[in-house]
């Protein structure tokens, strides 16, 4: 049940031209694909929290990845929500 995921952790996402980067004040992970990012976040959360059910949100940092002239056409890029169950292998 989604309601069980009580803790929410938010990340900013960037793409540097080659790799995806997800970061917040405590965690910074890099990966070639978003799936790799998701996996690395799960590993880091396991190290930090051990167990639990976590809701992870990721919003691409629009202003750092998209040129200024494009901002006026659309307000944001993506906002991902991932439910991670650290108790699952």
């Amino acid at each position: 049940m989604i309601e069980d995921f009580m803790i929410t952790i938010n990340f900013d996402v960037l793409h540097d031209g080659r790799k995806w980067i997800a970061k917040n004040d405590e965690i910074n992970v890099i990966g070639e694909t978003l799936a790799e990012i998701d996996e690395k976040i799960k590993e880091r959360l396991k190290e930090i929290l051990g167990k639990g059910k976590i809701k992870v949100t990721m919003e691409l940092d629009f202003r750092k990845n998209i040129p200024h002239w494009i901002w006026q056409y659309h307000p944001y890029y993506f906002y991902r929500t991932i439910y991670i169950d650290l108790d699952q292998p």
Partner: peptide
């Protein structure tokens, strides 16, 4: 700083809303 997106996010910070 990463924040959770809400229904009103962008209401005063995007050209579309403005």
């Amino acid at each position: 700083m990463a924040e959770e997106r809400r229904w009103y996010t962008g209401m005063f910070s995007t050209e579309d809303w403005w």
